[in-house]
Write a protein that binds this DNA or RNA. Sequence first.
DNA 1: AAGTGGTCTAGACCACGTC
DNA 2: ACGTGGTCTAGACCACTTT
Lengths: 227, 227
Amino acid sequence: MTGWQDIEAEVLRRIRARHWPPGELIPSEADLAEEFGVARATVNRALRSVADAGLLDRRRKAGTRVALRPVRRATVSIPIIRAEIEARGQAHGYLLLRRTLSVPPSDVRAALGLSAARILRLEALHTADGAPFVLEARWINSEALPEALDADFKAISANEWLVMHAPVTHGEITLQALPADAEVAGHLGCAPGAALFALDRRTWDGETGITAARLVYAPGYRMQMGV
Amino acid sequence: MTGWQDIEAEVLRRIRARHWPPGELIPSEADLAEEFGVARATVNRALRSVADAGLLDRRRKAGTRVALRPVRRATVSIPIIRAEIEARGQAHGYLLLRRTLSVPPSDVRAALGLSAARILRLEALHTADGAPFVLEARWINSEALPEALDADFKAISANEWLVMHAPVTHGEITLQALPADAEVAGHLGCAPGAALFALDRRTWDGETGITAARLVYAPGYRMQMGV
DNA sequence: AAGTGGTCTAGACCACGTC
DNA sequence: ACGTGGTCTAGACCACTTT
């Protein structure tokens, strides 16, 4: 009945109980395997899991030590706006405000590796039960994704279209607080200067920049994550 | 030369190339093991990794499918303030502003499962090269951690003391944008009403609430995460 | 040189959920 | 009932890094 999760739990217990204090070298996988009466692979699975959580530092030959400063990592599931709203039992609404072809600002061009050509620019508002929820301002690299020029973004949100049509290898997200400018305030129905939560997302397919989006949430928005 | 990471890469390639389109059932582990000429455990390791990343849905008997809506998860390493500042090549400063014993507000009491007793309350300012960086307002459950009453929080930040002395099993983090009130504005050197990034952290040891902290960052702070 | 973690194998049994 | 993923085993070889 001894599975790797049982061993993981026991390892966590020893770390928390300071039986293995921070910085301490813990027994080798082989020793622990013998102690628990399991195969070394099982111990490996357990220790790897704890190390992934940031509580152990493992190095070949040097052995496994309890992390001095546990690097706590938290995982966020990136909100898919429609799902997020529907999960609250509210009705999701989507309104395309503007669709243009423009030259992105230099920071976006630099980040996505774009030329100074005009590409697709979308602005849209998502609503929850009719109330403004988040304002989306997005650039889509329509040089790499010419199909995007034919998509009907009045009917489908850019995010959902991209999920279906654009391969993505990696991305980055930046969170910050921003004051509402006059235009944003108008769309979100708040006072100019209000403190708003903003999420910038950039994604790539290999070396090719695909899209850059800024989501500005209506006042009161919170983002939660477990640790 | 075929390791599980090679198989992972090939699986990712097939997903991105739409060779295995969203929703599609992919071959079983046994089939893939045969195709790649490796043991099933190796395929399992690769597929588990891709599934952990949110790109595959795996269910016994039902098999493995390409996720319809790739639940993109981002991982944040929770900033340890001192490390974050020093990583920028700046000097970290720490100033204890206030230390009291008080009764926490009801939302904190409810979250941490506290009685209405007075517990330790700390307010502190972290600086980067002398400039205000983040304001920390923290409750410490000194009923569960009486040693905290004897700690010298003028010399060591609450966070670092807690890492060394308090076991923690789990926690949660909430991010939001807040307007600066007069006191916060004074400490951070910004205008009242400025849009500030705030991080609330609560941690537990099993059922016992350990600490609740609100970190309010000076204007311009950004939090980044990879996807 | 030697010890430690990283990984692979071939086989096995089991839990789960669909059929 | 049965197919699939989840996990374990015992052994092996290798990569890395410290001694």
